[in-house]
């Protein structure tokens, strides 16, 4: 029973990832694409968590943390690029 429910939720998460990939490729403006990339990261975390529930293991928790950290840093880098035009400043502005 619970196995079926988990399979169905993985199916819907994959559908949501596909929708985000469409927005990532097609997105009219760059902020749309950045948000789609962030949403893909969050959905990946959810898929990995559901798989680790299905397999009854804790070995994938580090994968979850790592995807979270990398997605966080990537989103920050894109946000800085959109706001300032430069990703890493050489010298502090003030």
């Amino acid at each position: 029973m619970i196995y079926t429910i988990l399979l169905i939720s993985i199916f819907f998460l994959v559908l949501s990832i596909i929708a985000a990939v469409y927005r990532l490729i097609k997105g009219p403006s760059i902020p749309d694409k950045v948000q789609a990339l962030d949403a893909i990261g969050i959905n990946l975390i959810a898929v990995v968590a559901i798989i680790s529930v299905m397999l009854r293991t804790t070995a994938f928790f580090e994968v979850i943390l790592l995807i979270g950290i990398l997605s966080f840093i990537g989103t920050i880098a894109f946000a800085r690029y959109l706001e300032r035009g430069v990703v890493i400043e050489h010298k502090r502005s003030k």
Partner: peptide
């Protein structure tokens, strides 16, 4: 367990990248 030198180093480099992003190189 999952892990090792390569991914540990990448995590370290990610933390340093976060420092470079929020502060500056100097």
């Amino acid at each position: 367990l999952p892990g090792g030198g390569f991914i540990g180093g990448l995590g370290f480099a990610a933390a340093l990248t976060l420092l470079f992003l929020s502060y500056d190189i100097e």
